[in-house]
Amino acid sequence: MSGAALPLRAGLPRLRPGLWLACAVLALVFAWAVAPSLFTARSPVEGIPGAQLLPPSWAHPLGTDGLGRDQLARVVYGARESLAGAFVAVAVGLLLGTGLGVLAGARGGWVDAAVMRLVDTLLAIPALLLSLSIIILLGFGSIKAAVAVGIVAVAQFARLSRAEVLRVRASDYVEAAFGSGGRFAAVLWRHVLPNSLTSVLALAALQFGSAILALSTLGFLGYGAPPPTPEWGLLIAEGRDFLARAWWLTASPGLVVVLVVLSAERIGRGIGGPSP
């Protein structure tokens, strides 16, 4: 009843260095993707003869790979492939999933039942197997892999956005909006969508990280972009052959993936959506 019951921590504005760091990491990687030549002068595909498998040095901060290509250049240029793929995947999942979820939550009845059974079905197949099935349908390639990863995410977006729409619809303020004479479309637009989409946005950030993970997995297994495209998963797969001699070839792209996914997750939590 009195002060003891209040969570005091919530009231204090907290300094959140982690969030800023996460934003900085993503900003840097985005810059890699947009203008890679600003960050490295070397080519990601042309090898330097006689400079194979060099350890990290000033000239090659991350060393060179088995064909004498600069590893830093390959990681930097790889950002484009990975981020573009993740964007496509999140866009597919967000648009299809949220569309379906909002439709189901707002219309209810048989529409809701049908959409939710579809979601159940998508969720019943393990994510990796579902994306592999879609890849068999679409064929190999980076955009196709991205679409496959996006379709896997449809179920989660649909489920969350439907739940959010239902939560907001059941709220007093939506009833009050109808009670003050609001029409269905106006209430949906003014109250239901703005209040339900915050956590969908947070999920999008989380899914961005998951998509990068899933895409690198598909790339590693060889279903994504074909060599010599620098893609992070593919880089790890290639570096694996030289594991005993040049461990940095696998370590560096992997660490970049970890950092990017961690940052996306941190930002997703910062937006204030559901905890993963």
């Binding site: 303020y173 909006a177 004479g181 609001g182």
Partner: peptide
């Protein structure tokens, strides 16, 4: 018009006070 027990739940958390008070006027 109905006034609810919990005004915190019956006011849209994203709207300003002015917007909340004004909204019914937009409906007619």
């Amino acid at each position: 018009q109905l006034v609810y027990q919990n005004p915190y739940a019956s006011l849209d958390p994203r709207q300003t006070v002015a917007r909340s008070v004004e909204e019914p006027l937009l409906n007619f």
